[in-house]
Nucleic acid binder design. Structure first.
Lengths: 236, 236
DNA sequence: ACCTGAACACCGTTCAAGT
DNA sequence: ACCTGAACACCGTTCAAGT
């Protein structure tokens, strides 16, 4: 009668750091950040906590490794050949991260945590390098590399995370609630804010309705890119 | 002999949601996110967990209230009279948040968590409204309000958070480690990355050395503002 | 209405013991 | 070298009982 969730049989393959990280990612995707515990993880891997601690120092390191693995996979898809428009390279990287965060909603919070708890860890440099190469390909002079790359990085992480939050919220409202319905709900909620305290937000509420979020995300990228071009007189 | 930490005597003032939130902020500032527990909080307030749960639904709500309180205070300082250069309004708001995150480093992670866990909560609209008003004052046409405001908001939160992380890391390295020394350490670490995998980051490492972070932060703001101007032909 | 504090279920982590 | 699993300290939360 005891319900066997997943693969709780005796394990055949040997344990390894990669298998543990892989299981952690699957668990994060399936049950979210709060659902990943050493209990659920050991059950899934059919082992004990001590075995996991043999391969991984602690939970923080495990979350870091899971984050890095997903980010690395997302950035690896980046097309090698540069397209005719140099800005398409950045758009591709940005959309890759956008999709990854949407597919793994826990990624948004984890990226913020990783970057702010250990900026010297593997995640931050990986992101910085990938985005930075596209900035360089854009023809930005070296003096502007740091500013342009970090502006793009912060916008991408923030906007994609915000968007994943919207997707999650829509799911919470009901499994059949789609994005349009949710944006409609947000729009309506904003329109009901106090007119004295929130005149701007109320005024903008209507714009949110009917917006395609991917398009909106790219509009933000283009805005930052316009700033890069304006300040650095890139490819005239 | 028992060490009485802080004000663990019998409490005189009545408990209230505000007093609880205030104590939570003080505790977060003093001992960080992990140090705030219902144990430490009840000790500081000389009460029991049940008393706190009478005023606050759960820990998440408490963290949300603490975040909102600090953000509201930071944004309230915003100067009422608009200066001659319209961009100074945005710079003032941005620096206000920058300073708040630096003073309360837990704010960076919490802002990300709050915005991504409950975008309908008080924090996100408050930020959006305050930044948005400055965008409007800039003369941006209504069609661009949403894109411009969210681009600025995401850059501000990301860059200020990144910076707070640097400050914290410097403190971890040693109490007498100042920012210049830390940036030097980061610069050196980046220069030692694999040349094949991180050519861009290595090339930019030298720029990081000797940069003033506040100046760097404002450079990013100006980059996004340049994008706003370029795309919307604002106050040409 | 507001507060007390013991109790509960659960968490991350450790470690002596096995192979 | 790698894994087991009981045990530990601690956490957020509940709730019957008090005032």
């Amino acid at each position: 009668m005891a319900t066997r969730t997943g693969r709780s049989q005796r394990r055949t393959e040997a344990l390894s750091r990669e298998r543990i990280v892989e299981a952690a990612v699957e668990l994060l995707d399936a049950v979210g950040e709060d659902g990943l515990t050493f209990r659920t993880l050991t059950e899934r891997l059919a082992t004990g906590p001590g075995a996991i601690y043999w391969h991984v120092a602690n939970k923080g390191e495990l979350l870091g490794a899971a984050t890095d693995a997903v980010v690395a996979a997302a950035l690896a898809v980046e097309p090698a050949g540069s397209p005719d428009a140099p800005q398409d390279g950045i758009r591709a990287v940005a959309l890759g991260l956008f999709d990854a965060i949407e597919e793994h909603p826990w990624l948004a919070t984890q990226l913020a945590t990783q970057i702010s708890h250990s900026p010297w860890g593997p995640v931050a440099p990986r992101l910085f390098e990938t985005i930075g190469r596209q900035v360089r390909a854009l023809g930005v002079p070296e003096a502007g590399w740091f500013t342009a790359t970090s502006a793009l990085m912060h916008y991408i992480l923030g906007a994609a995370g915000q968007n994943a939050a919207n997707t999650m919220s829509a799911r919470t409202l009901g499994p059949d609630t789609d994005r349009a319905q949710f944006l409609d709900a947000v729009s309506t909620a904003w329109e009901q804010l106090d007119p004295d305290d929130y005149p701007f937000t109320r005024a903008v509420a209507d714009q949110v309705r009917g917006h395609d979020d991917r398009e909106q995300f790219l509009a933000g990228i283009d805005l930052v890119l316009a700033g890069v071009t304006a300040l650095h007189l890139t490819n005239g």
